[in-house]
Every structure is written in C-alpha cells, then in structure tokens.
Design a protein around this nucleic acid. Structure first.
Lengths: 210, 210
DNA sequence: GAGTAAGTTGACCCAGGGGTCAAGAAACTG
DNA sequence: CAGTTTCTTGACCCCTGGGTCAACTTACTC
C-alpha cells in the first residue's frame, strides 16, 4: 500500500470514528469522505463497503466497552446488583455513543466483526441474567431476548432524548429493573421526567428520521 | 367541486386509509396515488399536503379508538386495573395499526387535527395515571411523560416484531406495569419471548428503515 | 529522473421521494 | 352542442444517498 493511501485510510478512519460516534453507523459515506478531506471515490476504493469501514473503525472499540461492562457485571458479589449494573451500563453506553447503540441493535448484519461482538454481548447478557435468576434476584421468566429487545428500544429512546432530556432513558431503565426484580421495593427514580413541552420534540425524534 | 374530483378524492381516501393502516403515516404519497389509480398530481391537487390527507383520513378514526380506550379505562372500579388496561390497550392499538402508532408518537406535528388528538390522548393518560396514583396503585413518581415515552418506544417495538413475533411487545408492557405498580407480585408474563433466531430480524427492524 | 504501477478524483449513473405546472381532457352550463 | 371552467395528467424539477469508472496524479523503483 502506497504511503498516501495509508494516510488517506487513516484520515478516513478518524473521520468515520467521529461521525459514527456523533450520528450513528448510517451516516452517509460521502459525508465521511468530506470530513476526511478526501473524495468519496477514495473511500470506496480503500474500504469497499460501509460494513468493512465499520468493522475496521468501530468493532474493536465497541467490543472493549461492552466486554468491560459484562466483565464488571459478573464481578459483583450480588448477582442482582450485577444485573442492574449491566443493564444500566449498556444503556449508558448506547446513550453516549450512537455507534455502540447501533452495534447493540445489530443494525448492520453485514458487518462481520460487528455481528461477532453482538453475539458475544448476547452471550454475556445471558450469563448475567442466568446468574441473577439463580440467585433469585430477578423473575425467572425474564430472558436474554427480553433484554435485547429492551436494549433495542432503549437505544432509540436514548438517541431521541439526547438533545432535549439526555437522562430521560434512565427512568425507563428503572421501570424495567423494578419490573424484573423480585424484591418488592421501588427504588427512587433517577432524574425527573422530561418536561411536557419537551415531549413533542422527543416523540418526533423517536419516530422520525433516525 | 366537480363530480370526478369528488370520486377521485374518495378513491384517494380509501387508498390512503389502507396504506396508512398497513405501513404507517409516512407511506410515499405517490404510492397512495398509484393504489388509488390516479396521478400523484391529483393527490397534491385535492389534498395539498400529506398532513391534510392524514387529518382527513386518519384523525377521526384514531380519535375514536384512543378515546374509547381512555373512557373504558376510566370506567374501571379499580383505578390500577384501569391504568393497566389503558396501557395495554393503547399498545395493542399501536401494534394492530401503524397509523395509530404514528398518531400516538406525534410523528406528524404539522397535522392539526392529529395533534389535537394527541393532546387529548395525553390528557386522558394524565387523568388515568392521576387516578391510579391517588388510589395508591402505582408509584407516585410515574408521570404522563413517562408513559408517553414508553408508548413511543412500544410503537416502534410493536412494528418491529409485527411479522416475526407479533406479541413480543406484550412482555415489555408487562415489565413496565410490574415496574410501576405498587403491589409486589409479578403476574405471569403474557406470551413467550421471541426465539433467539428471531432476534436478529427483529432488532434490525427496530433500528432499520422505519 | 524516467517509467510504471498505484491511487485519487469528480463527473456520472442509479433509485426513491417530494413537489410543480403547462397542456390536454372532462364535466358542467346556458 | 359549444363554450367555459375545473380537473387530471405525466413529464419535469428538486434533493439525498449509494455506487462506478475513465482520466488524471502521485508515489515508488530502477
């Protein structure tokens, strides 16, 4: 590979990393090229497909973060607390990084590494749930699939509220946790709900252009 | 208005009603015209904007359904049961009719009648929640805004699972209800979770082209 | 410092959706 | 039935995004 190609690939990786993190994995490729200061032809030339770029730029990072979350969750003495930590942490990652949200949601089935990560995350989730269930901390009929669906909706919510009420998703997480754990008590809710006048904005983002 | 224009408007209303119900309120207008057997120019001519068409075709229907749900919810002796009914019923409406889902989500802020309905639904929700709270059936920190956000995510989930696991959303509703009510007991979950092999499909729909 | 291989560019193609409008067709009206 | 008004049509414009490729530039090699 020629030196200038190497440089361009680097510029493209940097631009992609930025844009993926800002706006998710389906940012227009031409925009990535623009930010990298390079023709979009070059992007296609060096990476071929969006999936390859994603695998190259995002996969490792996402794997690290999700892996760390799972590991930490399993290190808790209290399996129930570990479970709660995991759910919150993954949602937090999704909220702070749209790219991670897209990874967890499996939005790009064609990106190989990414799907592998997705699978690992799912396995981790299953283990964490199983552990909490055996400890009697969560209802026995809660499954990994339930959690994944929740993550999917939570990712969308987090993105929808990001500019308006960036912590609104935390309340939904709290409802889920309270709906799933066996202990009766409701903990106090984190943060206030969005103000009524924020709702139209948030709702339209939720359903609108993702 | 000329007789043929009247006829065409009727054909367009019918086609729009069908397509809105099948695929939600952001179906391409040209497709509506195509199904009506009419040029898209005629659609623009007779209705002007998508919002006008929506107001004309969907608003009344949605208002009726949501209104009936609210009314029935308030007719329950047990305020907590009324609340649970309302949440389930609204989600059910969203699941069976993408158009209603879009109405509840406020996806089209420019459609006047529709926004009015949205406001009414919100008021109803607030009343139902307030009643349940006063009866001590739900946690006191749960608000109408929380419920609306939940409806927003639930609409997306229901649509995502529609073809694959059409009742998967019911479990998330159950988690919410259990997370929100003051009684300790978890009811049995409605339906099984989606099968693991269904998850990729569902997740990609959740995040994918809405 | 040529010659050659490698890489870059931007004009170009496509599809899909929103929207407009001059010309032609159809329905009323007297 | 002719004249007038209303309505319809489909070609046309816009835009965004994905993707390709011939012609040009640049870097490496001898």
């Amino acid at each position: 590979m020629r030196a200038d190609a190497q440089r361009n690939a680097e510029k493209l990786r940097a631009a992609a990393a930025e844009l993926f993190q800002e706006r998710g994995l389906k940012v227009p490729l031409k925009e990535i090229a623009r930010r990298a200061g390079v023709s979009h032809g070059t992007l296609y030339n060096l990476f071929g497909t969006r999936e390859a770029l994603i695998d190259d730029v995002v996969a490792g990072l996402a794997a690290d973060r999700l892996g760390a979350a799972a590991e930490h969750a399993l290190s808790f003495e209290d399996a129930g607390k570990g479970f709660a930590y995991y759910v919150q942490r993954v949602c937090e990652l999704q909220a702070t990084d749209p790219a991670v949200a897209d990874v967890v949601s499996g939005r790009f089935p064609a990106a190989e590494c990414l799907m592998a990560i997705c699978g690992q995350a799912q396995d981790a989730a299953t283990r964490i749930i199983e552990r909490a269930r055996l400890a009697g901390a969560i209802r026995p009929d809660f499954t990994g699939e339930d959690l994944l669906l929740f993550f999917g909706t939570s990712a969308l919510l987090a993105r929808a509220v990001a500019d308006t009420a960036p912590d609104a998703w935390r309340r939904q997480v709290a409802f889920l946790l309270d709906g799933v754990r066996t202990e009766a008590a409701h903990g106090p809710l984190p943060f206030a709900p969005p103000a009524p006048q924020q709702i139209p904005d948030v709702m339209s983002r939720l359903a609108g252009t993702p």
